[in-house]
Amino acid sequence: MEYFLQQLINGLTLGAIYGLIAIGYTMVYGIVGMINFAHGEIYMIGAFVSLVAFTILGTFAFASPVLAILIVLIAAIIFTSVYGWTVERIAYRPLRGSFRLAPLISAIGVSIFLQNYVHLLQGAKMKPLQPIVTGGFVMTGDGSFPVRITYLQIGIIVATVVLMAGFTLLIHKTKLGRAQRACEQDRKMAALLGVNVDRTISITFVMGAALAAVAGLIFTLYYGAVDFFIGFLAGLKAFTAAVLGGIGSLPGAMLGGLLIGLIEAFWSAHFPIAYKDVAVFGILVVVLIFRPTGLLGRPDVEKV
């Protein structure tokens, strides 16, 4: 039981990261109808900006970790937003209206470019970071197996829940969210009603990038080391999460992220860790066989 609880906590933390990235995939897919394969790299850049920012703050012997995290968060969001916006502007917008595969290929190109760009800029080695948030407490204490939850894990889970709730509200209750959904359902009609479609798409990329920045910051804090390649597998898993939950669906992305985090944690605890990715993708295949639209995806019959 204790062991189960411990894996649950670890899995939720990991799932939070995947879920935050997955939202970026699913929102862009919902509105633009393309898979932004460069999104994993945006996340990686978020992690790098966080690492560099923490290092800079560290040289000033910054005392308050909360304030430091806040500053780094803002820096990471600003940087990734600029990258997200620029990628859309340069690599996707000119291809809008051309054949469906074109932006996909462009996205893969951007992804390779960003990886190599960070590789050149930061080098190939893992960059470590001193732990910023330390400590935690033991939840159950019958001695045989103490269940530990760190303050960082609590922070990650709380922040993720707040962000996801906030985003859900934003999409469903605000004018911007309505415009985004309108663009998703009928772009030309949305424009006819006064929605600036190009700008709405840009905002969507920026929102996805901001969440990826949060995920990148969390990764940096949690694992304490970053390299230029982390975006690849995390991006792939988050994309898997989005598909598993039903691509285009916001709650689906969150659910998919959490499930994948949990599957990884539990698999690693009981089976050979080398096969954990096989487990993740295996479950994706099984789910897609029985529910081709994903867990919370809508069947396409509704399309008008």
């Binding site: 309505r178 959904r181 309108a182 006819l192 006064g194 399309k303």
Partner: peptide, 28 residues
């Protein structure tokens, strides 16, 4: 003039095929 600037000018259209947003409520 761009499509999305028509409303500002005071021109509204109920287009062919209605094109309501199917997955939004009537109110939305």
């Amino acid at each position: 003039t761009d499509l999305h600037d028509m409303v500002k000018l005071g021109i509204a259209q109920s287009p062919e095929g209605r094109r309501i947003f199917p997955r939004m409520t009537v109110l939305e």
